[in-house]
Amino acid sequence: MTFLQLKDVSFTYPNGFQAVQHINMQFDLGESVAIIGQNGAGKTTTVKLMNALLKPTSGEVLINGENTSKFTTAQVSKKVGYVFQNPDDQIFHSDIYSEIAFGPKNQKLSASEVKEKALHAAELCGLTKWLEEHPYNLPYAMRKFITIAAVIAMDTDIIILDEPTAGQDRHATKLLVDLINHLTAQGKTVITITHDMEFVANHFNRVIVMAEKQVLRDANAREVFWDHELLGKSHLKQPYISQLAYSLNLNEPIITLDEMVSAIKRRINS
């Protein structure tokens, strides 16, 4: 059942800059979806419309069938959590625990519930041993996990991650994958904006491609990464393994390393 829906949404910033046009998207609970597209395609604006940080200039954003324009941003933020692209836009406490506990505290939960949610979120994000540290004592890539934990602690139905893979190493990327799987298994919807095509090819089924303020395609990763016309229009690239399969003329829509290994094996054995 559709939980979050954007119906013909357009948005123009107060300075007259139109950032998105006629966006239609819908998401069920428990889904993991990637949004990809060139810089300036309208990805961040779109997700900010989902959690009512921005209100549509025209069109409707519906959560559970209800138009979000009836609610305040604070009310919507209980349903839709947004992790900013830049962690430093979001961090304002002097220790990591307080930063993570801020959301649940504001939700007027009991002290024990606040603690439970904050500690659980910290654990999921691998932050347990740094709870008393100042957030700025951790490097940029890890500060991003503080902001992810802060949003997870709010226990919203939808969690939006804006470029969580930026600057992350192999272990952090794995942590992120586990985190997304954990959240979706709990019935939450996770929407991830990323520029990392390998990450998308390996870990997402549903991919939304945006270009020039609009949605160009909403399909599975394999279809997206083997549609050269679509990739050209949206200025995106195939993952490296797909590029290799393409240049080898393997005639198979390969998107992962394992698929490539099997394809080569099959050819050698045939």
Partner: peptide, 20 residues
């Protein structure tokens, strides 16, 4: 060391594990 190798180098390691 917690670093990463290029995709194609990883592919060659995976092929090696598969006997190629």
């Amino acid at each position: 060391y917690g670093g990463q190798l290029p995709q194609v180098a990883l592919l060659s390691l995976a092929l090696q594990n598969a006997g190629i």
